[in-house]
């Protein structure tokens, strides 16, 4: 993330869209709504432009610093959350579907082996 502009009325950041998706950016700025208002624009060829404007008359230096810190941390954290969500969405669906499967339609028998030398078979 790079700082493009930083004035008392405007803060602009450039974020590489290959690294941070639109979802990750929106989830990050959601939490910053009390201290600034945001616009997100495509910034060709491969970036997003994040513009922050003050909720009051102008930004103080502390608020500007705060926004930058929160953005950097938020992007990293929400990217991690996004990766987890993507990788686990199907397992989460299975957990929830099975949780409310009252009739046992989704029961899975163990796929593992049982090792009895004489040949006991628990499924028979």
């Amino acid at each position: 993330m790079d700082v493009l502009a930083s004035t008392d009325e405007l803060l602009q950041f450039i974020v590489n869209e290959d690294i941070y998706s639109e979802t990750v950016i929106f989830k990050t700025i959601y939490w910053l709504a009390p201290i600034a208002s945001f616009d997100i624009l495509k910034f060709p060829p491969k970036s997003f432009l994040i513009t922050a404007r003050p909720n009051t008359a102008s930004f103080s230096e502390e608020i500007k610093k705060e926004i930058e810190i929160q953005l950097r941390k938020g992007l990293v954290d929400f990217k991690v959350r996004d990766l987890i969500n993507q990788e686990t969405s199907s397992v989460r669906s299975m957990i929830i579907a099975k949780a409310f499967d009252n009739d046992g339609f989704l029961d899975i028998e163990p796929q593992s082996q049982i090792s009895d030398p004489i040949g006991f078979d628990p499924t028979r």
């Binding site: 028998e109 049982i114 006991f120 628990p122 499924t123």
Partner: peptide
Amino acid sequence: GRSFAWKNF
């Protein structure tokens, strides 16, 4: 307890 992993058992 391993055999009880199979529902029918």
